[in-house]
């Protein structure tokens, strides 16, 4: 059953269309990633989903129904949760839990479980001001789950963390994935690849793709040649050939070349390498990664 259904969602600020007619669904138990570069409209969509921004058009349905008060359905973690630095972790959970109408007894129980889950049991009586970025984010997860929402929505939950905090967070998300439906936004493709069942690719307010990771690779993945040789920028421009080469993407010490036809492209490239006398270290035909596809789509 679909937990969340979004139809023809639009948002305009004056003349500017931030979100242009977007529709998607999220099924029970799915882990979906909302992918897009900065400014694509990810946060705007999330704000409309959690009900703090009014859509200019379209509808948002939870379990098939419209709800003005979506709050019981949703747990929300913003991009930079600050909370009150003078509160302790436990006090914050109590405060927000009580505002979600959880009675004191079940709240105690739930708080205990969640603090255990996010690994903050020891720090629960410390002021939030003393928490690290990763701890705040984990506390954010705990507060978002305290009222047992049907859908957990997170805005860039791992983007701002250091590698260690990120790893912790990804592990935590994996463990809550089993019994929670999750939608999270990110601009880091690797995180989406690692966690999600489904991805929604967004650019400039338009939904470019929605489907499983497998589907996006199947329908959009193309082979590319990777050529590695010293002084990339000297010879990369010499590979231009409108009839054969589709795009050249020099990155670091190698060049990604997309060709129109693999067979003739390979012969032409090898010829070219020989005539330029490139001291190549690597010549490889690979399948595009999600990142390559994503960059191609949003350009």
């Amino acid at each position: 059953m679909s937990i969340l259904q979004v139809n023809h969602l639009q948002k305009k600020y004056g003349e500017q269309e931030i979100i242009k007619d977007i529709g998607f669904q999220i099924q029970q138990g799915e882990f979906s990633a909302l992918l897009g570069p900065n400014g694509a409209g990810k946060t705007t969509i999330i704000k409309m989903l959690i009900g703090i921004t009014k859509p200019s058009g379209g509808q948002i349905l939870f379990q098939g129904e419209r709800h003005d008060r979506k709050r019981p359905f949703i747990g929300y973690l913003p991009q930079h949760p600050t909370f009150y630095s003078w509160m302790t972790g436990k006090e914050l959970l109590t405060f927000l839990g009580r505002l979600s109408d959880i009675d004191q007894e079940s709240l105690e129980q739930r708080m205990h479980e969640l603090l255990e889950l996010v690994g903050l049991s020891k720090a629960k009586n410390k002021r939030i001001g003393t928490y690290s970025g990763g701890m705040k984010q984990r506390l954010g997860i705990a507060q978002a789950l305290i009222h047992q929402p049907k859908l957990l929505i997170m805005d860039e939950p791992v983007s701002a963390l250091d590698p260690l905090g990120r790893r912790d967070m990804l592990e935590l998300l994996k463990s809550i994935k089993q019994n929670t439906t999750i939608l999270f936004s990110t601009h880091i493709l690797h995180d989406a690849e690692e966690l999600s069942d489904k991805i929604l690719i967004l650019n400039q307010g338009e939904l470019l793709f929605s489907g499983t990771l497998h589907q996006v690779l199947e329908s959009h993945q193309q082979p590319i040649f990777i050529i590695q040789a010293p002084r990339v920028h000297e010879w990369a421009p010499k590979l231009v050939n409108e009839n054969i080469v589709e795009s050249i993407d020099p990155t670091g010490c190698f060049v990604k070349v997309r060709v129109k036809d693999i067979a003739s492209g390979r012969i032409w490239l090898l010829d070219r390498i020989r005539s330029l006398q490139l001291p190549i270290q690597k010549f490889e035909l690979v399948q595009e990664s999600l990142e390559d596809i994503f960059i191609r789509m949003v350009r």
Binding site: R71, H80, T82, L99
Partner: peptide
């Protein structure tokens, strides 16, 4: 500023 108002309002208050 710090988003606590949003937090409070995305609860039942």
């Amino acid at each position: 500023d710090n988003g606590m108002l949003t937090f409070i309002l995305t609860r039942n208050a």
